[in-house]
């Protein structure tokens, strides 16, 4: 089986003498998998996600994503990597308030050098698929939480990334909306999108992920396959 993500003995320390946020973590994720990373607050979940996304560098160990040694990338290399290989979804959406919904979705494509026309076309497709095309010219502040998260998902998908990383994607949503977003992510995974999400919600993890990695104090406590894994 081909490996999409591989972490090998990864440790991340923020202070020289402090407790490591992540310690001796090793695991692999195959293409098409939906993996949930769980754990209590301060267990290192978000740190792990940042390491996979190339937003941060490990103190030791290696991180390989889609064949790329992410731990060795410069800031420029990391930005290019994220454009091409990774789509990020955040708990608080992180949309840009100055830009319309369409402009928010198009932005990663334009940063990657796509023309406005092509980027707009792609954004239209995604907004339609996520049932929010009616809000294309609206500003994020006017949308509901669920709608904003759909916009964030559309933005994450605009460059057809190999991997979706979601950090508490339903953490800021009510349960009904959270379920909608969860179903959305499941649908994406079903159609072949690899997904790694961080959550502290065991229900979300069990329903929408085929594998759950439990982190406690920066170490993997358990790594359990909970359901059928989608393979590419």
């Amino acid at each position: 089986m081909q490996t999409l993500i591989e972490l090998s003995d990864v440790t991340k320390r923020y202070d020289d003498d402090g407790h490591p946020a992540v310690e001796h973590v090793s695991f692999a994720v195959a293409p098409g998998e939906a993996v949930a990373i769980m754990g209590p607050s301060g267990s290192g979940k978000s740190t792990l996600l940042n390491l996979i996304a190339g937003l941060d560098r490990p103190t030791s160990g290696t991180v390989t994503v889609a064949g790329e040694r992410v731990d060795k990338l410069s800031e420029t290399g990391g930005a290019r990597f994220r454009r091409q290989q990774v789509g990020m979804i955040f708990q608080f959406f992180n949309l840009l308030d100055d830009l319309t919904v369409a402009d928010n979705v198009m932005l990663p494509a334009q940063l990657a050098g796509e023309s406005r026309g092509k980027a707009l076309g792609r954004a239209g497709e995604l907004l339609a698929a996520l049932h929010i095309s009616q809000h294309a010219d609206a500003y994020p502040a006017r949308l509901s939480g669920g709608e904003r998260q759909r916009v964030a998902i559309a933005r994450a998908l605009v460059n057809r990334p190999a991997l979706l990383l979601a950090d508490e994607p339903t953490g800021a949503l009510d349960s009904a909306t959270g379920s909608e977003i969860g179903e959305l992510l499941l649908d994406l995974n079903t159609s072949g999108q690899s997904l790694v999400m961080v959550t502290h919600n065991p229900d979300l993890a069990s329903r929408y992920a085929g594998r759950v990695i439990l982190l406690v104090d920066g170490r993997i406590s358990s790594d359990v396959t909970t359901g059928p894994q989608v393979r590419r």
Partner: peptide, 16 residues
Amino acid sequence: VHDLGVFKAIGMTPRQ
């Protein structure tokens, strides 16, 4: 600063 982080997270290079 947060917006700058978002820009970078979605793929804006340092030069950009």
